[in-house]
Amino acid sequence: MLIVLNGKETEIKDGMTLADLIRYKGLEPDRIVVEYNMEIPKKEDWEKVALKENDRLEILRFVGGG
């Protein structure tokens, strides 16, 4: 199924949760922030977020800035 991940249409496996996707991408949960359909799910709830077709997901991290 297709979701919009960081502004790009992205094919992911059906039945994935948000936590599955984070693991699949090899990201450290402590160091990232996620916005799911304009809401901010708590980290402890990532396992419960079942991704659906056309979901809009933003996965962010801190970079250098002034």
Partner: peptide, 10 residues
């Protein structure tokens, strides 16, 4: 210390 928040580039 200031930092910025940006999209991860996969």
């Amino acid at each position: 210390i200031t930092v910025a928040l940006r999209r991860i580039d996969f």
